[in-house]
Write a protein that binds this DNA or RNA. Structure first.
Length: 431
RNA sequence: GUCCCCAUCGUCUAGCCUGGUCAGGACACCAGAUUUUCAUUCUGGCGACAGGGGUUCGAAUCCCCUUGGGGACGCCA
């Protein structure tokens, strides 16, 4: 093993979906490994056989990959290593540093000792063993206790840096004791402040979701989520807000990770996501958009990819999440779309408007080339002849063909919808 | 309760380590410009060093206290 190589790990517990905060921790470990040319390993903390489930593990691995995180080598399953933990615990017991209580093996904590931790993000933190109770190493049922097997594994895997959440700070002195009990030098620790909800409380569903998977489902792009998570607690130094994982890995400096806890801001995530959507190629968006349409139970069996792509081109700049697409574009996929009441009253009730619509429709019927240029030409011509503002024709038409007051450019929408549907819809409301 | 972490605009942050540039940027918000609506884009505006003591010629920056927020105190991980 290369002595100078950094080795870090992410150690999820497959008892639920990948939490946003865990995703962020994984990202920082990955970034640190990339930056230092080290290794990023994955260890599965599945000692709790009751709560651990295979489907959670699969989902977690999928979410990590989705975020752009890759890892080296095979997974380490703690559930496969119970013998190793027992062996180590027996050694400590034999050395007289532990005692048995029933089947459990418990480490005897020596009181009155100062343990100093030189944390990478916080600096020096001191603990006194007077505050620490004797520590279970092996539980009565034979399974290892977290703090113990964590140390056995980190030592065994040659982990050089442990980057994890602040909620582990109080575990650290306990773990340092175990390293010492086994005659090992502890690795470097770095504790990152936790990510909180907008109101300062623990991140929970009412803040808009806690698992990576939920954001994927809502139509956030992985690059955008990763970008946002990275910026929460670290900054590239200049004023950049949009940064790829690769660039971040080059610029990353673990010493610049903030020691201040942050609040999750869904607004900013949405903005970043919008930036990524706008910059995406339509062909890359297409399969994702189709998933969203299917999830929203939109019937796309009769439309082509080309048709959907044209619509994506029109709405790319308008969505903050891909999940917004189906509602924004329902009129492209069905004829019985909803009519916004306010817009209906404002644009289809007024005197003259239905008549203008009829005239516009009549002129459009004569068009051979139904493109946004030719449509616009006709529209502006009518406006001029009838001494109207083009808007007076445009707004009612928009209502007629989309049922909405907001959306993509009218003429582009009409071109994509096609002459037949456009005329049908216009005549439906015209006089 | 005990121990621990933390404190710059509403939010994310730069600046802090190595005291001295109107405390800079982004999101959000507000106004204006462009535009057929919305969105985009471009201008401008609003808006912060938690409070109090020190140290110093000088403190957002160093020290202490208070207050406030968060975390941990499991045979969960």
């Amino acid at each position: 093993m290369d002595k100078n190589k950094t080795i870090v790990r992410f150690a999820p517990s497959p008892t639920g979906f990948l939490h946003l905060g865990s995703g962020r921790t994984a990202l920082f470990n990955w970034l640190f490994a990339k930056k230092t040319g080290g290794k990023f390993l994955l260890r599965i903390e599945d000692t709790d056989k009751v709560r651990s489930e295979e489907r959670f593990l699969e989902e977690i691995l999928e979410d990590l990959k989705w975020l752009g995180i890759d890892w080296e080598g095979p997974l380490t399953h703690q559930s496969h290593r119970f013998e190793l933990y027992r062996e180590k615990a027996e050694e400590i017991l034999a050395a007289g540093k532990a005692y048995k209580e029933g089947e459990a093996i418990i480490y005897k904590v020596e009181k009155g000792i100062e343990i100093e931790l030189d944390d990478i993000v916080h600096g020096k933190i001191k603990f006194n063993t007077d505050e620490i109770k004797d520590q279970v190493m092996i539980k009565s049922d034979g399974s290892p206790a977290y703090n113990f097997c964590c140390v056995v594994d980190d030592a065994d895997l040659g982990i050089t840096h442990i980057i994890r959440g602040d909620d582990h700070i109080s575990n650290t002195p306990k773990q340092i004791m175990f390293y010492e009990a086994m005659g090992l030098t502890p690795p470097r620790f770095g504790h990152m402040p936790l990510m909180m909800g907008t109101d300062g409380a623990k991140l929970s569903k009412r803040h808009g979701g806690v698992s990576v998977e939920e954001y994927k489902r809502e139509g956030f792009l992985p690059q955008a989520l990763a970008n946002y998570l990275i910026l929460l607690g670290w900054s590239p130094g200049d004023d950049r807000e949009i940064i790829s994982l690769e660039e971040a890995a080059e610029l990353f400096d673990i010493n610049n990770v903030s020691d201040v806890q942050s609040k999750f801001d869904a607004q900013k995530l949405r903005w970043i996501n919008g930036e990524y959507i706008m910059a995406s190629d339509t062909k890359d968006l297409l399969p994702l958009i189709k998933e969203q349409l299917l999830a929203a139970e939109v019937d796309i069996s009769n439309v082509t990819d080309e048709y959907i792509s044209e619509i994506i081109d029109l709405y790319k700049v308008r969505m903050k999440t891909l999940g917004e697409f189906p509602a924004m574009t329902d009129h492209f996929f069905k004829d019985d779309f909803e009519m916004e009441e306010k817009g209906k009253r404002k644009y289809l009730g007024k005197e003259g408007n239905p008549e203008n619509l009829a005239i516009f429709a009549g002129e459009l019927a004569n068009l051979n080339t139904f493109s946004h240029e030719t449509i616009e030409e006709v529209c502006r011509k009518i406006a001029e002849e009838r001494e109207l503002k083009a808007a007076q024709i445009i707004h009612p038409t928009r209502m007629a063909i989309s049922g909405k007051t907001a959306g993509a450019g009218l003429f582009e929408m009409m071109e994509v919808l096609g002459k037949q549907k456009v005329l049908e819809r216009m005549r439906r409301v015209a006089k």
